[in-house]
């Protein structure tokens, strides 16, 4: 079974979704700043063998509709929560990647009924690195560890979104105080960090896990920031094991 494209209209915006309908409970993947579901499709392919797995494009990115002005982080979270309802999913697991983690945390805190569990893969932004320059430096240091095949996808994503949307997303990620919200997440949460992730220091990944009332940390040897793209099978295995344990 391969991927299906399924779009939904949330408010007046089309939200593009890619789905592989596995037998298990639903998982919805949310991408990082400026990019789209493109980088998450390999994970959807693999995780979709076991779970009803989705990857959506946030408004303004990928194949989704473009709002007049970039959405703030809470607005993006509201769209995700509304999309969950529109798609008819019952309390899925929300899997964020990078900035996507900040979005799904905001969903879990402000729409407690929307998600039954969270997976935070490479949660940004470390409060100690919260400046555009630090972030850019970390991004550059991380880049050599990423798969070279991801670069054209990123370029296509940035082209789709446009500079304004991309910069706005990075701005939102820096402004967001995710550490204040983590203690309010009431569902089980798995934090995934690539051991060679230069954007998410180990100490921050530990702090994220510590702040989550029901957090658990998985460190993946040898992987960079984008664990789901670099090693979708390992990430899918870890996520599936976590979900079977928390019985979502």
């Amino acid at each position: 079974m391969s991927l299906q494209r399924q779009d939904h209209v949330v408010g007046d915006l089309t939200v593009a979704g890619h789905r592989r309908r596995g037998p298990g409970p639903p998982v919805v993947c949310v991408h990082g700043a400026g990019v789209s579901s493109r980088e998450l499709l390999p994970l959807v392919e693999v995780l979709g063998e076991r779970h009803d797995t989705w990857a959506i494009d946030l408004p303004g990115f990928g194949a989704s509709g473009k709002p007049d002005r970039p959405l703030t982080l809470p607005a993006l979270a509201d769209v995700v929560a509304a999309w969950v309802e529109e798609a008819g999913l019952e309390r899925p697991c929300l899997l964020g990647v990078s900035f996507g983690c900040q979005v799904v945390v905001d969903v879990a805190v402000r729409h407690p009924e929307a998600a039954a569990a969270l997976v935070l893969a490479g949660p940004t932004v470390d409060p100690r690195g919260r400046s555009p320059w630090r972030l850019a430096g970390q991004w550059l240091r991380n880049a050599p560890g990423e798969s070279p095949r991801m670069m054209p996808l990123n370029v296509a994503d940035y082209r789709d979104a446009g500079l304004r949307m991309v910069l706005a997303a990075f701005g939102e990620s820096i402004r967001d105080r995710v550490e204040d919200k983590l203690p309010l997440v009431t569902v089980p949460a798995l934090v995934i960090r690539g051991a060679r992730d230069r954007m998410v220091p180990q100490a921050w990944a530990e702090e994220v896990t510590r702040l989550l009332p029901y957090g658990r940390l998985a460190v993946m040897d040898g992987l960079p920031h984008m664990t789901p793209y670099r090693h979708p099978r390992r990430v899918a295995g870890t996520v599936a094991a976590f979900l079977s344990e928390v019985a979502v």
Binding site: Q202, E206, T209, L212, G215, R216, L217, V219, D221
Partner: peptide, 11 residues
């Protein structure tokens, strides 16, 4: 929550 090697190069 957190079970980690500290300063170990597992490879």
């Amino acid at each position: 929550k957190v079970g980690v090697f500290t300063g170990v190069d597992t490879r």
